[in-house]
Simulated assay, not measured.
Amino acid sequence: MTVPQRVVVALGGNAMTGPDGSATPRAQREAIAVAARHVAAVVGLGVAVVVTHGNGPQVGNLLVKNELAAHVVPPVPLDWNVAQTQATIGFTLADELDAALAAGGLPHRTAALVTRTLVDPDDPGFATPSKPVGRHLPREEAQRFLDLGQDWEDRGARGWRRVVASPEPRSVVDAPAIHALVDAGFVVVCAGGGGIPVVDDDVAGRALRGVEAVIDKDLTAALLAREVAADTLVIATDVPQVQVGFGTPSARPLQRVSAGEMRAHAAAGQFARGSMGPKVEAALRFVEGGGRRAVITTLEHISDAVRDDDVGTVVTP
């Protein structure tokens, strides 16, 4: 196959924590260092690379801090939490990527960009918040956050959990800046956690403001890949290939598959909404929107996936 010219690599938020889920600063930096070495290997293929990442565990930790300190410090809105985790993960990834690139004898430098993603204020997701975030709490502890106007749901024996809107991403506001950095030779880290959700209150004046929401990181990765003119989207996950019939005796991995075939599998309910479903949907949106190929595979295989159609699950138009 022809090696692509520009690649977007989407890292999961769990790739930013320790193997046991530990989110101490040391565990996060060690995990990010491992991810950085794999991303540097992609850069070493001679392609321009844009990196985006998840932030679920990190936002969850910030929400716990908000809860514990709510009686002393006013909780900050969710868009602020996304911005804070973007900045923290971004600078750490930039540091570790710079080190990995230098160790590989590569001249590139890394730039991390705090990135906004435009959503529609009339998106139906705002009317029915459904994305669970943070930890479970007893009813009496959740009440103080209900009093602050947050949405919480009774999740049975586990307790109450906050739910937030998860609107569709419409555009990556800072795509022109990402383009400029890539064209200048930087490896760019951006759009973490799906991007900071913003709405446009004034179409003519571009009056943007943040909103309380969480955007699906994989769907933003597909949008980002199109908007920065990437020809390949690589989604790193914890399995080497997507499977149909997952968890059944008839389970089988998918290797090379057309968008039409993958769309049919998705329509048949083959992919869980909370795990593989968004990754498959992101891959489909990218290739159906003009992308050349999308690959879903493990972090360890992302550089192989960029240059080899026999690695991971490869989705083509």
Rank of each mutant, 00 (worst) to 15 (best):
V7S: 00
G18P: 09
A36V: 04
V39G: 01
V47M: 07
T52I: 01
N55A: 06
G56L: 07
N61G: 14
L63V: 10
E67G: 09
H71C: 11
V72D: 15
V82S: 04
A83Q: 02
Q84P: 10
Q86G: 07
L97S: 02
A99P: 05
G104N: 14
G105E: 10
G105H: 13
P107T: 11
A111M: 05
A112E: 03
F126E: 03
K131E: 09
K131G: 01
P132L: 06
L146V: 15
L148K: 10
A157W: 11
R161Q: 13
A165W: 00
A165T: 03
A165G: 09
S166D: 03
P167D: 02
P169H: 00
V172F: 11
A175Y: 06
A180V: 06
V189S: 02
V189R: 00
A191E: 01
A191G: 12
I196P: 02
D202N: 15
R209V: 01
V214Q: 09
T220K: 02
A221I: 05
A225C: 14
E227Y: 00
D231P: 06
A236Q: 02
P253S: 11
G269D: 10
R273M: 10
R285K: 15
G291R: 00
A294S: 14
I302L: 13
S303F: 07
R307Q: 12
D310L: 10
P317W: 03
